[in-house]
Design a protein around this nucleic acid. Sequence first.
DNA 1: CGACCATTTGATATGGATCAAGCGATGTGG
DNA 2: CCACATCGCTTGATCCATATCAAATGGTCG
Lengths: 228, 228
Amino acid sequence: MLTQTITRNAAQQPAARVVRSVPTNTVSLGNSIKMMGALMPFGRNAEIYGQSEPADYLYKVVNGAVRTYKVLNDGRRQIGSFYLPGDIFGLEVGGEHTFSAAAVADSKILVIKRSVLVALAGRDKEVARQLWAMAAAELQRAQDHIMLLVKTARERVVGFLLEMAARSPGSSEVDLPMSRQDIADYLGLTIETVSRMVTELESTGAIALATSRRIVLCKRGTLNRMNA
Amino acid sequence: MLTQTITRNAAQQPAARVVRSVPTNTVSLGNSIKMMGALMPFGRNAEIYGQSEPADYLYKVVNGAVRTYKVLNDGRRQIGSFYLPGDIFGLEVGGEHTFSAAAVADSKILVIKRSVLVALAGRDKEVARQLWAMAAAELQRAQDHIMLLVKTARERVVGFLLEMAARSPGSSEVDLPMSRQDIADYLGLTIETVSRMVTELESTGAIALATSRRIVLCKRGTLNRMNA
DNA sequence: CGACCATTTGATATGGATCAAGCGATGTGG
DNA sequence: CCACATCGCTTGATCCATATCAAATGGTCG
């Protein structure tokens, strides 16, 4: 075992906790809610929040990408989810974060005070509905992840690519913001196995690599069939 | 692959959908809500609801045990969760069930109309809070499950036993209502591997088997350490 | 008692991990 | 602007954990 790769130091940006009196700008959260929030930049690998810190803020990815993850006692890292532009993360049901969060690439993140939103939800049915929808999305994500993790390496990689494609604007071409190591830690595989599976898919013509991070899904039927 | 074991027919009890004018009895749901519901018996392996059926009811295990699961195209079965007495299941965020549910052993299940509860939640803050807590528990379960699935076979089995122990009344002795096949399908392992790991744990004295379904956790420290 | 089902045990095969090295791109300092 | 270090990714060789295939054992119910 020992997938290692403990996020090496990094964090050159101020941590999210240090949100103080930043100039508030009105931005849309979810679909219809207009919320006050602070737009913060995070450098690649910068920590946004840590596991078991109080979950006082919600975050919306404006651009870039974010991963949530846990590091086990022995150093193995498991990525819980990736969040792409438009996605909201950091919503916890309990009082504190169950995962840590870090920027996968340089990102701009909208930071919203949780208490504001929760208070609002108490009065506004629509806000409450959206909070529910976020929790729902989170649960769906986790359940889909479970189904991925019991498959073969090939199926996991295919499943991952299809998932990313479904979440991307141009659905036939995927731009992966994360490294092979991130993918490996998400899929419970090693970096070598991920790489080999990608190579294999390419050699069968199921996908094509514009660059190692930019993948074209050629044979959608084949891929969908492999997704079992 | 091919863990197979497609739940063989079974279902000798009327399906839950057929809930009609059953004599309603008042029973406690969660902690404080008193709800109208129908108590229904389900025989071992009887289907309670099927995947992608409308989620019109909530269910509370009164006694026995329930599994939720999905069957993949190729026949592999993945169990999402086990529910023990006191647990509530069947709450979906969307309109329909994302898993199927079946009784692991002969069980009595309290069936509650969802619409009644949701309507009530609109008026009663406490009910709304409890619905939120249920969703939270569900998410927590899924996330814990993800962390289990990336571990070694030994760790998964240990993690499973500790989880079951934590949820059981007498915490040092566990009565497993489910078969080895159920455990295997929950952990993403084969029945043989589960059996071997149990045998191994027994031979090292970490656990003892009263019967194959009744397990005593002897060396809790050792087990916790293996749980990484 | 005998049939059936769940579980265990054994022998072998294999998918993915591990160890190791090579390669290409990116950026940095001289 | 080039030389070189670094980093991310790929490729290769080997090992090992778990799956697979097969059979024995044990418990339960008619």
